[in-house]
Amino acid sequence: MSSRYLAYGLSIACEFDLPELAPAPPGNDADVRISLAKLPPPHGAGLMQQGADTFLRTRGVAYFRLRGGREIAIDPAPGATEPEVRLYLLGSAFGALLYQRGLLPLHAGAVAFGGEAAAIAGPSGIGKSTLVAHLARQGHAVLCDDTCAVSFDAAGRAIASPGLPRVKLCEDALAALAYREPDLAFDGAKYALSLPQLSGALPLTRVYLLRDGPPGSRICIERLAGFAATQALVANLYRTQYVGAMGLTRQVFSLVTALARSATIFTLTRPRGLEALGEVSFSIEAHLADAASGALA
């Protein structure tokens, strides 16, 4: 018997429980099947491609085999805990699986505005999740945190699918957002804040690339176009290093440039730190509202 979940627009059947994912009703066909297995010992560490299979080894945690974008087989390392295994399953392994399925995983969170999605992208630790959580407080439904799975419809429009129904935050961000820690699951580094999540995918029309400006600097939103937009998106892919190793350079080039054509790409530079959080969140909302009313070219 397996449990059913929904994430990144995929129905997932898993042999064990995944409390981090949104549950889904049982059905016959799952897009992705996750099972425990004994795998032949790996030759190395990190990501390895062997024929059509992708192997991913996280030392001391687990060894994953991803096949055809449909199967994840997991061989846990001796002594690894279930939360550790799930952390890498839902992070690195899912990221590689999304690439394998021909989706484009952005290193980004995303929120809804007026029936569309806006992604907040940037490197780890820059404050994506904190900003997403603040926007959620302002009433924006959250699609995802950390990994935004982008696909394209028949007309070439970028679509963002809901990811995991939670936002992971550090202690200082929680305090700034006035959440109380005892209510939240803790993974040793971050607290997981559960949020009501959108059930359906939305057109991804804007990507904001979060950047640090000097202390005390003004918040600045600037549009990127053409090559600059493309390069910036490449730099904000989830686990960019997987792309070449998986032999997907051509595919990802075509997806990234399709996203640069379909969505409008902006840099959002603001002073580092939590003091300006409310102001940054307000700036994005104002920017989104301008776009929705057509006031912005």
Partner: peptide, 11 residues
């Protein structure tokens, strides 16, 4: 190659 905003981008 492809085109984004009128610019050729080559890989």
């Amino acid at each position: 190659e492809t085109e984004v905003d009128g610019e050729i981008i080559a890989l």
